Simulated scan of single mutants.
Amino acid sequence: MSTSSFEVIPPAAPTTAPSRPVPPLPAVEQAPVLDLPLAVTDYERVLDWVDAAVAVRASEYVCVAAVHTVMESREDDALRGAVAGAAFTVPDGQPLAWALRALGHDIAARVYGPELMARSCARAASSGQRHYLYGGRDQSALFRLTLRLRQRFPGLRIVGGYSPPFRELTEAELDAVAADINRARPDVVWVGIGVPKQEKWMAAMRDRLDAPVLVGVGAAFDFHAGLVPQAPHWMQRSGLEWAFRLKQEPRRLWKRYARHNPRFVAGFARQWASDRRARD
């Protein structure tokens, strides 16, 4: 597991400081959309929560959900359990932010995974917060991502990274991954291996890792590495990002969108109608 493009981190000195009560993390309001709790929040509050979790050396992970995540979690028990185990799940997809607003919640916009990662890196470049990258298409793509992030955010400390193979890792490999991450001593581990793998990976690895926060951000690695173009802002604001991505990767995505999008609209329409009746 090569980390030649990353910082070389000496082992931490042992500490014998007496333990102190750990202050609670900031509360995150949540509301269900098709039974999946979503955080009613914004970028700054999420980043403040991450900073607070790092400060107290918490042991948490955060999920980032689009419509695909919501619908898959209704059929995949392991994914639903992994999402339920997260500290909270942010509404990454524009339709989820609209859904929360339609239910009467005060949310200005979605919390888009790639943008959350970029804003976190900008903060970390000033604060010195240490980041680890787990994911990417291959190791060369991961190195490309590392270089581009460091160029965009001078001073950003990316202390390690690993691009796993496209298969299930053995227990020995998982142990090696955990050892590599713990040796690098990151504050935040960004996980970009796609839904549902990243949610299940975070749930399975949470107790093996010392890093206070893990965040699953899906395609953000490809976007920030410049390997996949992002939809224009007008399409993102209009909830049409799925159409742009479908044009880019039709073979991979057409079944997902054809199956999940109509079912989400129908399912949420029932939830909205039930919510309206309950209010009346």
Rank of each mutant, 00 (worst) to 15 (best):
E171H: 04
V188P: 04
K197T: 14
P196M: 08
G192R: 03
V228W: 05
E173N: 09
R208I: 11
V189L: 04
G218E: 06
R167H: 07
N182C: 08
L227Q: 15
V213F: 01
D222V: 09
A220V: 08
F221V: 01
G194A: 09
P212C: 11
A204D: 09
F223A: 00
R206S: 00
A176H: 10
R237V: 07
H224V: 11
L174T: 12
E173F: 11
E171M: 06
D187T: 11
L214H: 03
H224I: 13
W201F: 15
K200I: 13
L227D: 11
E199A: 13
A172E: 15
R208P: 00
A211T: 07
W234K: 00
G216F: 07
A219Q: 09
A220E: 10
L169F: 11
D210E: 12
R237Y: 07
P186T: 10
D175Q: 11
D210Y: 02
G192Y: 10
M235T: 01
V195L: 06
P232I: 15
N182I: 06
L214G: 00
D180P: 01
W190G: 04
A203Q: 05
M202V: 13
V188W: 01
R237I: 06
T170S: 13
R208D: 05
V217L: 07
V215Y: 04
K200P: 04
A178D: 05
I181A: 03
V195S: 10
G218V: 06
A225N: 04
W234D: 11
A204S: 14
E199I: 00
A184Y: 03
Q236M: 07
T170D: 09
A203N: 12
E171F: 12
R208Q: 12
M205S: 02
M205G: 01
A219V: 13
H233M: 11
D175H: 14
R167S: 14
D222E: 06
A225L: 03
N182M: 14
N182W: 12
V217I: 14
P186N: 02
V228L: 13
